[in-house]
């Protein structure tokens, strides 16, 4: 398979992730779209690692996964805390910091 197959697939996944963040108002779905974008970047990393025979690309994927796991843990904890105090997690309702 040519390298462009993986890169275009990665670009399409990234596009769907962007659309999820921009279009959906449920923060859980926005988080999942974020994960999808991470995944798209990881696919490009692994593809380049294989085609250039450089193992560093795969290690970067490893680090991205770790940071994504940390980000999900903190983000979901924030969401639970917000839901407890405000009883909603609609992103349009959460405008307390707005003047």
């Amino acid at each position: 398979m040519p390298l462009s197959y993986y890169l275009i697939l990665s670009a399409i996944m990234f596009l769907i992730g962007i659309l999820g963040v921009l279009l959906r108002r449920n923060p859980l779905i926005m988080f999942m779209s974020l994960e999808l974008m991470f995944n798209a970047a990881n696919l490009a990393f692994v593809a380049f690692a294989a085609y250039h025979q450089a193992l560093s690309g795969q290690l970067f994927v490893f680090f991205v996964m770790t940071v994504a796991a940390a980000e999900v843990a903190v983000g979901l904890a924030l969401m639970v805390a917000i839901f407890r105090t405000r009883h909603t997690i609609d992103v349009d309702e959460l405008s307390m910091l707005q003047g």
């Binding site: 040519p2 390298l3 462009s4 890169l7 085609y51 025979q53």
Partner: peptide, 16 residues
Amino acid sequence: ILFRGAGVEMAALPSL
């Protein structure tokens, strides 16, 4: 990707 990037010259996965 199609016209300027590395996708053009890398047509197949090299044998690892």
